[in-house]
Every structure is written in structure tokens, then in C-alpha cells.
Amino acid sequence: MAEHERDTRLDGNAAAGLLSTVFRCEPSEVMLICAGCGADGPMGALLAYGMEMGAVLRCPVCDTAVLRAGSAGAMLWLDVRGAVSMRVTIEH
């Protein structure tokens, strides 16, 4: 059965265009710590699901939805409860 399943997941990178509305830096380079398991890595290394309705970025280790975005018409909604923290490099 799994053999015939369609592979809908993408890399976190695929959501970077959508999230560039929010982040001034390159979204796929934002570092996040997963609230589910503590895994630490760049947004680009998360797995992206549900791009048709927004973006659900999940931890590749434990599947926690680290960052969820909804493209709701004119508004982009964000839920980052799945991240302990986000960090970005300060540009000087």
C-alpha cells in the first residue's frame, strides 16, 4: 500500500517564499529548536507539508509541527508553539 502512496512532503526550503513575508532574513536559514525533541537545525532542513493551504514544517526527527503557517486570503497566520526558540544572525 505504501508503495502507491503519493509523496506530498517537500523540504522546508519550499516554504521560504511564503515565509519571506514575515522574515527579513532568508527564512530557510532561521535556526529552530524543536519543542518536541530538542532537535536543533535550520528551517530548510524541516519537512514541509500542506503547502496548498499554507505550510506545516515538521521536525525530521519526531514529526512535531515546529512552525505552522496558514495562507488565509490576505492574511498569513503563524503558529510557532512547536519551537522552543528561533534564532537569526544579526547583520552588522
Binding site: M1, A2, E5, R6, T8, R9, Y49, G50, E52, M53, V56, R58, D63, A65
Partner: peptide, 11 residues
Amino acid sequence: FPVLSAGPTPH
């Protein structure tokens, strides 16, 4: 019948 999933397919 498009497939839209918010996560991996559970079995």
C-alpha cells in the same frame, strides 16, 4: 482525487 496532508500518513 488530489491528496492534501498536514503531516506524514499514519498506518
